[in-house]
Every structure is written in C-alpha cells, then in structure tokens.
C-alpha cells in the first residue's frame, strides 16, 4: 500500500465532489492509468469524472506525465481536464 495525496481541478474536481484527498493505493496500482481505473471502482462520482479516461491529464509531483508513467514515489498526483488558460 502506498499513501498519496490526490488533487483534482475544474470539472474533474466538481464531478468527484472534492478538491483533494489522501488515499492508500493497493500495490496493483502501478501506473497513472492504473490509478484512473482504481478510482473508478470507488464510486459513481469517480466514474462520472473519469468516464473518458483518455482526455484526463495526470501530473505527478506537479509535472505532466502520460498514463503509462509509473506512480512509484509520487507524493502528489493531480488529475484534471485539458487546459484552457491563456
């Protein structure tokens, strides 16, 4: 089990219903993609937020990563939609 801080932004945050939480992740969660799959087992709100997994962006310790990236050693993992600043 690994303990990690999760932070959510924009409509991912709204659909999950919270901005941040700390979770104990099972050892089967190896990559960022595994994390998205695991979160969808936690409840309908996660399913609604992460329904279109391919559009969800992931940042580990505040750096962009793709879904294949291992999450080992992550202190903070952020999930958010494509960015629309500027």
């Amino acid at each position: 089990m690994a303990r990690v801080d999760l932070v959510y932004f924009a409509w991912v945050r709204e659909r999950i219903g919270k901005a941040e939480e700390t979770l104990e992740l099972p050892d089967s969660v190896v990559t960022a993609g595994d994390l998205l799959g695991y979160l969808k087992t936690l409840g309908e709100e996660y399913v609604a937020a992460l329904e279109h997994e391919n559009v969800i962006r992931v940042a580990i310790n505040q750096e962009h990563v793709d879904h294949h990236e291992p999450i080992a050693g992550a202190r903070e993992i952020a999930l958010f939609p494509p960015m629309t600043g500027g």
Binding site: F9, A10, A59, H64, A78, F80, P81, P82, M83, T84, G85, G86
Partner: peptide, 8 residues
C-alpha cells in the same frame, strides 16, 4: 502556455 500551463 495555452496547452500545458494548468489553468481552466
């Protein structure tokens, strides 16, 4: 900035 800075 528009595609990789985390703003929404």
């Amino acid at each position: 900035l528009k595609t990789s800075a985390p703003f929404w």
